[in-house]
Design a protein around this nucleic acid. Structure first.
Lengths: 143, 143
DNA sequence: TTGATTTGTAACCGAATCGATTACTTTAAA
DNA sequence: TTTAAAGTAATCGATTCGGTTACAAATCAA
């Protein structure tokens, strides 16, 4: 997963958290992230579908947090914008005649689920409020 | 990380573990994985650099395990063939004038390190011997 | 009602990644 | 000497992804 959609999303949500409860346009968000507004709007659509933010069309519109920052975990953010993948699996079916090839896919699927579970536990332990706190360089609540 | 180098590497090592102590050619390995021998040889180079396998050139050559399967963890395998990344970071510098933009990179680097640490703990807990065991559908030693 | 502003969305581009492939060199066993 | 295998360079094609342009839809204010 080399996409930076996740860090962009956390960045955007952190800005919205500091702007609460007023909204922020995709243009302004794109400037802080240093990317194109359409890239931000595509993210906003996914974050909105996940119920993390709301958007307002028209003049003075923009995006706003739909939830208090301490109730948004980074796991939810990741789920909203990235596919649940830790590493790629076999693109072609391995040789079924080989004892390894016949079963390796199921085993590696298990391994991936274990790894994703570990990532979930870690990301569930970090809220958007924690991120905002770290941004302000206050004491890390989870040392 | 969408590359399947990691699953290919585990697949190859599992085959070598069942073939111990004799060696196995990249052609034979490529057949079980269902890919091209050069793809396998590129993997073998990385696994060899990590000290996990050895290779023999010439007729009757091939790759062999350099270590007992219960001393090879999936974390070592992953380190050998994949960069230590959980998600992409900001490609362009965020706006330093924004309070979020100025610090978000460092914070997300921390988050990535936490996630990588969780992945490391999970993958360190699975050895190549465990994988071989799971391939044989015996009771999972780590339920 | 009109104009301005903003989201939503489609289309496309260019760079990067990656597995696959061909071809060749190097090594070493029989 | 022949043959089989690793090592390696070069290239191809598909896919992904951020970036960009353009435009439609919505909504607010004058």
């Amino acid at each position: 997963m080399r996409s930076c959609r996740f860090v962009f999303a956390v960045h955007v949500l952190a800005v919205l958290a500091t702007r609460q409860p007023s909204s922020c346009s995709s243009i302004a968000l794109a400037q802080t992230v240093n990317t194109n507004p359409v890239v931000i709007r595509r993210l906003l659509i996914d974050l909105q579908a996940a119920g993390l933010i709301g958007t307002i069309r028209g003049p003075r519109g923009g995006a706003y947090l739909a939830m208090p920052p301490d109730q948004i975990t980074l796991f939810e953010v990741r789920c909203a914008v990235d596919p649940p993948t830790a590493f790629g699996l076999h693109p072609q079916s391995p040789a079924p005649s080989c004892p390894v090839g016949g079963r390796i896919r199921a085993v590696m699927k298990q391994v991936q689920d274990q790894v994703l579970g570990a990532m979930e536990r870690e990301l569930t332990g970090i809220t958007l409020a924690d991120v905002v706190c770290r941004l302000q360089a206050c004491a890390d609540p989870r040392p």
